[in-house]
């Protein structure tokens, strides 16, 4: 009797571990459009933070959901259908990339980008090359 209970117990643990491992392996990506904002700043301040001290800025912003406001300079459609909007400057500003799925659902917002003097964009901060890079972006004010 005891042996049966032990076997059942071990079996239940094994099945639970299998289910947990399966769910972990297939867990979905973070939905950054719905994610709450960690830090709010301006494109100027964000760029200056990285230009002033990249190590400290990385500690502060890397992998965080950042809401940034700034003047759009250009909007470029990439080969995979994503769109990159440059704030402040094409090469030395803040680059915000919107996934193609988001772009296709918000075409009218992208059509108006060049007409507005300022945009508020939320995205994941990936770091700094010649510009600060935000990915998985979405508009927070349309």
């Amino acid at each position: 009797m005891n042996k049966k209970i032990i076997l059942l117990f071990i079996g239940a643990i094994a099945i639970s571990a299998g289910i947990i491992a399966y769910l972990q392996y297939n867990k979905p990506h973070i939905n950054y459009e719905k994610a709450s904002v960690d830090l709010t700043t301006t494109a100027d301040a964000l760029l200056q933070a990285f230009e002033h001290n990249e190590t400290i800025a990385n500690q502060q912003y890397l992998n965080r959901v950042v809401e940034v406001s700034g003047k759009p300079i250009s909007a470029h459609t990439n080969p995979n259908g994503s769109v990159t909007i440059a704030l402040l400057d094409e090469l030395q500003g803040v680059s915000c990339t919107f996934d193609s799925a988001y772009v296709s659902q918000h075409l009218s917002s992208f059509a108006q980008v060049k007409e507005v003097s300022s945009l508020v964009i939320k995205g994941r901060c990936d770091g700094f090359l010649t510009d600060v890079r935000l990915s998985k972006c979405s508009f927070t004010h349309k």
Partner: peptide
């Protein structure tokens, strides 16, 4: 940037 690599699986 290493963080800009996208995988099919989040894990």
């Amino acid at each position: 940037l290493i963080k800009s690599f996208e995988f099919e699986k989040a894990l």
